[in-house]
């Protein structure tokens, strides 16, 4: 039972980077790839319908951490306090940029696009530092050189992933680049997978008791096909054709 929930956690973490990774990367690259307002509209339009379905992987991850590994949740989040706060603030700023970009008047658009880019960069940097801190056994001050270096490396990785996604989604005519996208998605998930391998033993030893895990399994497993189905539905609906304009 512990193993099942550990695997669920690992899949959610890796999946988060494979999926949300391209949103983050594209957000970072927005001013570079989108030199005109029209080009930025197309880039945002490419990722927009995926963002809501992608970012919830992290919310689900937090839920699994709390439900199946509650002791670790408290310990890890509180030890990583400043980094988690930074991550949340970056996430909020990024999302606000997306949601409000087209809602306010045109003169505000550069502000929200800036929020989108700054927030995305903050997400990548904070994640890199968090993964590094976990690998190093939650040091007291995680805002140091190795943390920053890990953040910068992750930023570059996700930017590449975002670029691959945009090239794949925005092509007109016969489809190419699917394999490249799969490759960059796997690459984006590698750091998370490595961290999972390192912490797996520790997590297994700190899982919630069987009673709790059984309840979670009984409730979640029957619904799991719907969760997967909804995600597949998003990809089938939005991976080609015209670009929706709401964000």
């Amino acid at each position: 039972m512990e193993i099942f929930w550990l695997l669920t956690f690992a899949v959610l973490l890796a999946g988060y980077f494979a999926l949300e990774g391209f949103d983050i990367g594209l957000g970072v690259l927005l001013p570079v790839l989108g030199r005109s307002p029209a080009a930025r509209d197309r880039l945002v339009g490419a990722m927009a319908p995926f963002v809501l379905a992608n970012e919830v992987w992290l919310v689900a991850l937090a839920g699994v951490l709390f439900g199946a590994f509650p002791v670790l949740e408290g310990r890890a989040l509180s030890r990583l306090y400043p980094l988690v706060v930074a991550l949340l603030l970056a996430w909020i700023v990024r999302d606000a940029g997306l949601w409000f970009r087209r809602r306010a008047g045109a003169s505000w658009r550069p502000v929200w696009e800036g929020a989108l880019t700054v927030g995305s960069a903050g997400l990548a940097l904070a994640w890199g530092a968090i993964l590094m801190a976990v690998v190093r056994g939650l040091p007291a001050s995680p805002f140091d050189l190795p943390g920053l270096a890990a953040g910068a490396a992750l930023l570059a990785l996700l930017a590449w992933h975002g670029r691959t996604f945009a090239a794949w989604r925005l092509q007109d005519g016969p489809r190419r680049g699917g394999r490249a996208l799969l490759l960059s998605a796997c690459a984006a998930a590698v750091p998370a997978a490595v961290v999972m391998v390192i912490v797996a033993g520790h997590m297994l030893a700190n899982a919630a008791p069987d009673q709790t895990l059984t309840v979670l399994s009984v409730m979640v497993v029957p619904v799991a096909p719907i969760l997967v189905g909804a995600q597949v539905w998003v990809w089938r609906t939005f991976s080609k054709g015209a670009l929706p304009t709401f964000f």
């Binding site: 689900a60 839920g63 709390f66 439900g67 199946a68």
Partner: peptide, 11 residues
């Protein structure tokens, strides 16, 4: 307490 919160996120 974690169980209902986990179920909220997933379900």
């Amino acid at each position: 307490f974690g169980a209902p919160l986990a179920l909220e996120t997933l379900l």
